Structures are given as C-alpha cells and as structure tokens.
Simulated scan of single mutants.
Amino acid sequence: MIGKNKKMKKTVGERVFDILVHGILLLCFLIILFPLMYVVAGSLASAKELAENKFLIIPKEPTLDVYKYILSTKTFPRSIAVTTLVTIVGTFVNLIMTCLTAYPLARRNLLGRKWLMLGVTFTLVFSGGLIPTYLVVNSMGLIDKYAALIIPGAISSFNLVLVKNFFQEIPESLIEAAKIDGSSEINTLTKIVLPLSKPALATFTMFYAVGHWNQFLQPLLYLNDSKKWTVQILLRQIVMLSSTSGEDDGMMPGFILPMMSLKLAVVVVSTLPIIMAYPFMQKYFDKGVMVGSVKG
C-alpha cells in the first residue's frame, strides 16, 4: 500500500526535460502538418485565392474543379489500374524473392554464407548505374513491358539484410525440431518462419508497395507506349501539357486551369492511396523494422 500511495515525484530537471521533449515533438508535428494542410488547401483553392495568400490553410471558397479535370482525362483510370497492378505484382515478387534469399542466408551452416553476404552488402554501396541497367533491360527484351518495372528491382539489398536479421532471431530449436519431424526447408519456411515474421513481412510489404507506387524514373525510361503509363508519369504529363482546359476536359467554357492548384492536386492524388494504406500497417512498423535492424 505504501508503494501505491507514494508516487515518485519528478525533480525540476526532469520536468524541464519533459517539457523540452514535448515542445520539440510538437514543433516537429507542426512542421510536418502545415505543409500537408497547405497542399490540400491549395489544391481546393482558386487561382485568385492562391495568388492573394502566400500560405493558405483553409480556402474560403473551396472548389473541386482541378480534381474534376484530373479525373476527367481519358487515360487516368487506366493509369491507376496499371499502377495498382504493378504495385501488387511487384510487391508479391519482392516478398517472394526476398524471403527465399533471406532464409538460407539466415542459416549459419550455409556453405559460403560469408561470401554471399559480402556480395549482398557490396551492392548496397556500388551499383551498375543507369546506362548499364538500361542496356541490360533492353537486351532482355523488357522495353515497353511491365516486367521492366518489376524484375530489375526484384530484391532490395537493404531490405534483404533486415529480413535476414529478423529470420536469425527465430529460435534455432524450432527449426531443428521441424527438421527432426521430417519437415522440408520450404515447409519450415512457410509453416514456421513466415508466420513468426508477420511484423517484418507487413513492414516490408509497405516499403516495397510505396516504392512501386512512386516509381517515376523506371516507367519514364522503359515505357514508350502512353497507354502503359503509370499514374506518376500521367500526372507529370498533365502538369506539363495543361496550361488551359481542352475541349474534352468536361470543364465549363472559358475555365482557366490554375496551374499551382493543379500541381498541388497532383501531389494529393499520387500520395493519397499510400497515406490511406499506412494506418492499417502502422502497428507492425516499430517491431518489424527495429527488431530486424538490431543484429548483423
């Protein structure tokens, strides 16, 4: 009872430290929040209102004209479908290849393990470069194919190292017990290792998905057919070519497209799907990233 009634009192120094920490966190939150609010508010504001206000948080007369313009383009639904397909298939390939590579590297009795890890870590610092990569993709006949957005980046060396470290923390006794029971390596991976690695897999699923969704340079280099453009390339094209509304844009006659609002709306459209998916994965992030990064 004495322990419950007697609360630990903080010293003046501890209170000052707590206030300082909370103040810094609040400042960081505001630094992140206000630009996001400006982007959303600017995409809903008129060109006149944006010109009159250097920093806009709440538009007085919000309008969805810019979003109507973006959504009215004939290629927008197709580009969204293409990006979604590439993101889903690419993320699935990334996870399969990463897990199949990380699992044997996590086994300490693997022959030549140190040399294989040296090769993986070497690619973290050095890469072939843009032109050699393009020549390889071209020689494989992947130009103007969606596979060019998936196969060259099938494995991320950085993510591979983290997943390997996560697999190493699974008790070796579980794997040995499965082996005694006659379990194959693939069965051990799918039935024991992967179920115990859900936080890591969820985290790297998000990492890979964000990477595929935000791909810009690869589609720009490898996709020549405008019908195969991803949403990032399409939105760039909209910003570059749309100084005024066209005849088929579905906008009112004489409507002048505000370019700044268009650019801000493009940011919202391109990031909204990932922002909406993040809360569903957030609970896995701390454990999934930190546990795999503790040991080498």
Rank of each mutant, 00 (worst) to 15 (best):
1 M>V: 08
1 M>T: 09
8 M>I: 15
23 G>S: 15
26 L>D: 11
26 L>V: 13
27 L>S: 14
28 C>P: 07
29 F>C: 15
30 L>A: 14
39 V>Q: 08
41 A>H: 05
42 G>P: 05
45 A>F: 02
46 S>H: 04
48 K>F: 07
54 K>Y: 13
59 P>I: 03
59 P>N: 10
64 L>E: 01
65 D>I: 01
65 D>W: 01
68 K>Q: 12
68 K>G: 10
68 K>M: 08
76 F>A: 10
81 A>C: 06
82 V>N: 15
82 V>P: 06
88 I>Y: 00
90 G>I: 00
90 G>P: 03
103 Y>P: 07
106 A>F: 04
108 R>G: 12
109 N>E: 15
112 G>K: 07
114 K>I: 12
114 K>C: 08
117 M>Q: 02
119 G>Y: 05
121 T>R: 10
127 S>G: 14
128 G>D: 03
134 Y>T: 05
139 S>V: 08
139 S>C: 10
143 I>T: 14
144 D>F: 08
146 Y>M: 14
147 A>G: 06
148 A>Q: 04
150 I>F: 03
155 I>L: 07
157 S>T: 09
157 S>F: 06
158 F>Y: 11
159 N>W: 03
160 L>M: 02
162 L>I: 14
163 V>T: 09
163 V>I: 15
165 N>L: 09
165 N>Y: 09
166 F>M: 02
168 Q>C: 13
168 Q>I: 09
170 I>P: 05
170 I>F: 07
172 E>C: 10
175 I>S: 14
178 A>S: 15
180 I>W: 00
180 I>G: 01
185 E>S: 12
185 E>R: 12
187 N>E: 12
187 N>L: 11
191 K>S: 13
194 L>R: 01
194 L>T: 00
195 P>L: 00
199 P>Y: 01
202 A>D: 02
202 A>W: 05
202 A>S: 10
205 T>K: 01
208 Y>C: 13
213 W>K: 05
220 L>W: 03
220 L>V: 04
220 L>H: 05
222 Y>S: 07
228 K>F: 10
228 K>I: 11
229 W>F: 15
229 W>D: 09
234 L>D: 08
234 L>G: 09
235 L>Y: 03
236 R>L: 09
238 I>M: 14
238 I>S: 09
240 M>I: 12
242 S>G: 10
245 S>D: 00
247 E>L: 11
247 E>M: 11
250 G>D: 04
251 M>S: 03
255 F>E: 03
264 L>Y: 04
266 V>E: 01
267 V>F: 03
267 V>P: 08
267 V>M: 09
272 L>E: 06
274 I>Y: 06
275 I>L: 13
275 I>F: 09
276 M>L: 15
277 A>C: 13
282 Q>D: 09
291 V>K: 08
293 S>H: 06
293 S>N: 00
